[in-house]
């Protein structure tokens, strides 16, 4: 036990040193892609979920292709990094951005976007999908979506989110629109701040990411009323999907999830797309990745290439409308 872990520690150090020397000597200049290090730009700060997932993907991608340098470029709900990618220019054939719902929500909220969130990019693959869960505090009198909607139509209930324009906030706004209820949005800064208010019952409901609330559902401090994906989640098999129980309240089409996929500049070479696609396919199928996903209550993303583009276009349409209705469009 001790010796294997010592080995692992050593191998981690060796890997770190190797990647440094590799980066310093520069990769041999061949014609084949990748002829340089790959830059994976994370549009959020270091340490967040997107960052964490990106670094895991980078780690795996590194083993398939070449050194992957992760770079954080947060700002204006991910649109600063995306705008940088859209500008293209030198090195854009080795630059990727980890896109997430912020890609479409940001495009719906921020003014004077200098790019088209669908047309200006090549969509490589959706890599990870994390469902949201509709949760209420354990002390809540509501035990089903039906009861909740009925109460929300009667009086004023509130929902929390880790911040305005997050997928969790927008999921709530979408719910509010579709069910014609008057939920009050109570914004926090990050799920770490939002969670205590929910646990204590200061807010009535939240549409939080699975990994944030899963342990509290298990310990009985939160009640899961529904999941927001099209089908039930394997992690909470007894909890219905919002679609199946909410049809009569207008939730028949309600699907939201936190997705994380790689996009590149529109001039990204086809050869590179193919190679990258194949590498990602291999990663998604790998044991390492499959054992990593459950920690985040996540499943592997399915959409590849144009399918992924169509998915993003749909998302964009959905969030643009929600942003309009919620008075968030600038």
């Amino acid at each position: 036990m001790i010796s294997t872990s010592t080995k692992l520690f050593k191998s981690a150090v060796v890997a770190a040193v190797a990647s440094v020397t590799l980066a310093m000597t520069g990769v041999a200049h061949g014609e084949e892609w990748p002829s340089d290090n790959i830059r994976l730009v994370v549009p959020y700060s270091a340490g967040g979920t997107t960052d964490l997932l990106s670094r895991k993907v980078a780690d795996l991608l590194q083993k398939e292709l070449t050194t992957v340098v992760v770079e954080n470029r947060p700002g204006a709900g991910s649109t600063v990094a995306t705008a940088q990618l859209a500008r293209g220019g030198r090195g854009s054939d080795h630059m990727l951005v980890m896109a997430s719902p912020g890609h479409t929500i940001g495009a719906s909220i921020y003014p004077n976007l200098r790019y088209d969130p669908v047309e200006d990019f090549v969509f490589i693959r959706n890599v990870i999908d994390i469902p949201n869960v509709m949760v209420v505090p354990a002390s809540s009198p509501y035990n089903s979506v039906e009861e909740f909607v009925a109460a929300a139509r009667e009086g004023q209930l509130s929902f929390s989110s880790p911040g305005i324009g997050s997928s969790i906030h927008m999921s709530g706004e979408l719910f509010k629109n579709l069910t014609q209820t008057n939920l009050i949005h109570v914004p926090f800064r990050g799920s770490g701040e939002a969670l205590p208010a929910l646990l204590a019952g200061d807010v009535d409901v939240a549409f939080e990411n699975m990994p944030t609330v899963y342990p509290h559902i298990q310990s009985g401090k939160l009640k899961a009323l529904a999941v927001t994906t099209a089908e039930r989640s394997e992690f909470l098999p007894e909890v219905p999907a919002l679609q199946e129980v909410g049809a009569e309240f207008g939730l028949g089409d309600y699907v939201t999830s936190a997705w994380f996929g790689l996009i590149a500049h529109k001039s990204f070479p086809e050869e590179a797309q193919a190679k990258l696609g194949a590498a990602l396919e291999k990663i998604v199928e790998s044991k390492n990745f499959k054992s990593f996903l459950p920690q985040f209550g996540a499943v592997a993303g399915k959409e590849v290439g144009d399918e992924f583009r169509a998915f993003v276009a749909d998302e964009l349409e959905k969030w643009a409308e929600v942003a309009e209705q919620a008075n968030l469009k600038r």
Binding site: V20, A23, M24, R39, V69, V70, E71
Partner: peptide, 8 residues
Amino acid sequence: FIYLLNVP
């Protein structure tokens, strides 16, 4: 910064 701290 670049190689030891991984900050580009």
